[in-house]
Design a binder for these strands. Sequence first.
DNA 1: GCGGGTGTTTTGAACGTTAAAACGCCCAGG
DNA 2: CCTGGGCGTTTTAACGTTCAAAACACCCGC
Lengths: 334, 334
Amino acid sequence: MATLKQVAAHAEVSVQTVSNALNAPHRLRADTLARVNKSIELLNYRPNRNARSLRTSAVELIGYCVPNWPNQTHLVMDQFLHALCAAAERTGRHILLFTAEPGVDGMPTYDDLHARRLVDGFVLSQTETRDPRHGWLKDQQIPFVSFGRVWKESTQPGPWVDVDGAAGSALAVRHLHDTGRRRIAFIGWPKSSGLGEDRLGGWRTECKRLGLPTTSLAVRCREDSIEEGARATAELLDAGREVDGIVALSDILALGALRELTRRGLRPGTDVGVTGFDDSPLAEVVSPGLTSFKQPMDLIAEELIAILTGGSGGTPAERLLQPELVIRGSSAPG
Amino acid sequence: MATLKQVAAHAEVSVQTVSNALNAPHRLRADTLARVNKSIELLNYRPNRNARSLRTSAVELIGYCVPNWPNQTHLVMDQFLHALCAAAERTGRHILLFTAEPGVDGMPTYDDLHARRLVDGFVLSQTETRDPRHGWLKDQQIPFVSFGRVWKESTQPGPWVDVDGAAGSALAVRHLHDTGRRRIAFIGWPKSSGLGEDRLGGWRTECKRLGLPTTSLAVRCREDSIEEGARATAELLDAGREVDGIVALSDILALGALRELTRRGLRPGTDVGVTGFDDSPLAEVVSPGLTSFKQPMDLIAEELIAILTGGSGGTPAERLLQPELVIRGSSAPG
DNA sequence: GCGGGTGTTTTGAACGTTAAAACGCCCAGG
DNA sequence: CCTGGGCGTTTTAACGTTCAAAACACCCGC
C-alpha cells in the first residue's frame, strides 16, 4: 500500500507537495501537479483516512442508530438508508451504524461514539414524542440533525427535517374530493402519537375547508396492523356512515381497509377511495394498487446531510418538506 | 477531550503505562493500575480511535453495501442490519454503510474503501447467481464473508453463511402433511434464481419421500408480487389440481395465494394450508397469520462476524443454518 | 546589483496512539 | 560478590497525514 512518502520519492518532490496536490492543487505549478498526479496514479496511491482524520480531527462519518422496534416495522427503512448513504457519499462522508437503548438510556452510547472519534455527528430518526435525545445531544454540544419533529414541544432543540403530514392528509382529502368523494373518513393512531395527530389535523382542516363532514368519521386504531385497519373500516361501515373515501394514516392500515371493503363486496377505488401513507413497497404490490404518499427520501437525506455538515450557523435549520401523492387504483375516480 | 498524555501526567506515570492499563492491564502492578484507572475515570478519558487505528492499522469497521433494488424489496433488512450491528458491537466493531453499483462495476468502490482504510473487510448480502464480487474480492485479498451462497458455482470463493432453503421447503411440506394435506403445490420464482431452485428442490424431494404427487404442482412466477402469487394460485385452482396445501417461496407470493383463496370463498388454513418464507413483518400482521420461516438473524450475524474477524484460518468457513418454522393460522389443521 | 514582491516548494512539528527495546529493580543461583 | 532473569515501567520510534512557517526561486523596478 503506497504512502505519501513513496509517492513523493517517486515524483521527486516533498511529501507536503503531494499532500497539496490532493488538497490544494492550485498551489502547484502545472507541470509539478502533472508529475505528482502521474506518480499517484502509477503507484495507485490512496490517502489513509485514519492518518488524515488524526491530523484534522474530522472523521467524516455520521452515526445512525439502527432501530429495533419489533412492533413498529419500518417498511421504508431501506429506502431511507440508501438515500442517506448516497447523500453522505456525495460529500465524501459515510454512515456508521450502531445500536443503542431507546430513550435517555442510550445516550452514553452516542456520547462514547463521539468521544472516541468514531463519528462527527448523528442523524436521528424514529423520533418519539418528547424524545430526550435532542436536548441531551444539544447540551453535550454533539452535532446532530433530526429526521422528524419532536412532537408537542413548542421549540425543539437542534435542527430538523420532516415531511408535512398535515399537508399530506389535506392533499389526500382534496384528491378524494376531486374524484367525487364527499364523505371521507380518517383511520389513525392513538392520541399519544404526535405524527398521528398531525395527519389527523390535516384531514379535519381540509374537510372543513371543502365543506365536508367530519363528525364521527375519524377512527383511532390501537396499533399499526392490517387487522386494526380492517376493524376500523368495519366500524365505519357498520355505523352506516356512508363512507365513500378513507384516508388511512399508514399503508398497513390502508391494506386493512382494502381487505374489509373487498370482504364486503365493495370495490376499492370504485365504490370507496382509499389512500395510505409512506408509499411502502406494499402499496405497489397489492391489487388494486394503493394510492399513497411518497416521502421525498432523496431530498430528505440531502437536507439532513447538508444541515449536519454545513455547520450550525446561527439558528438551527428547520425544513418541512412536502410528500408526493402517488395515485394508484385504490383511489380511481368512482 | 482528554488524551493519554494528560491522563499519564495526572496519574504520574508514562504514556505507555496508561496505554497498557487499557490494552494489557495484567502487565501493571495492581496499585498502579488502580491509580491509572482512577485518573482515566476522573478525566473521562476515551481513546481516540483514529490514532489507535493509524498505529495498529486496523479500523474495526466492516463495510456493508446497502442494496437499492427497487423491484426486490428487502422486508427483513432492518432485522438483518440490527442483528449485524449488534454482533459487530459485541466484538468492538461497527458497520459502515456504503452504496455501490451492482455487479463488477461496483468493485472499485469496495477496493477504494479498503485501500483508504475505511473498513477492514466486507459483509456481502443480496448474493446473486454467479455473483462476481466474491471472486474479485478474493483475488484482491480483501477480507469478506458472504450471506448467501453464489448459486450454481460448485466451489464458491471465500467463506459464507446461508440459510438452508431446501430444508425449509421440506419442513413446510412435512408440516402441511402432518396437518392432513396431501396435494401440496409450490409457488416459486424463475429458473434463473438459485435460491428459488434450492427451495423448489426441497419441496420436490420431500413430497416424493412422503409419497405425495408433484406433477404439475409447481408454478413459477415472473416476479415477487402479490399479484403474481394470486395468479399462480388461480392457475393451480383453475386446472383442477385439487390443491390443499401451498408452499410459497416468499411471504409476498404467499399473500397473493391467501388473497386468491379468500376471493374464491376458500378459507386459508382451513381449506388450504399456506406457508411463506422469511417471516417478514407482513406474516404476522395479516389475517389469518401467515405460517412462515424465520431466518435465525442473530445467529447468522454472529457467524458472519465471527468468520470475518476470526481470520480465515486455512479453509474458508461455510455455515448452513436451519430456518425456524413459525406456525400461524394459514396452516391451521384442516 | 539590490530590495521587495509573488508564487512554489520544503522543513519541522504535531495529531494520539502502540510496538519494541531499554531500563532499573529485586531475587535466586553459582 | 557477581551474573542472569523476571517483572514493571519508561524511552524511543514509528504509523501517515496536514498545518504553519520558513526557505527558495523567480521576476520586476529602481
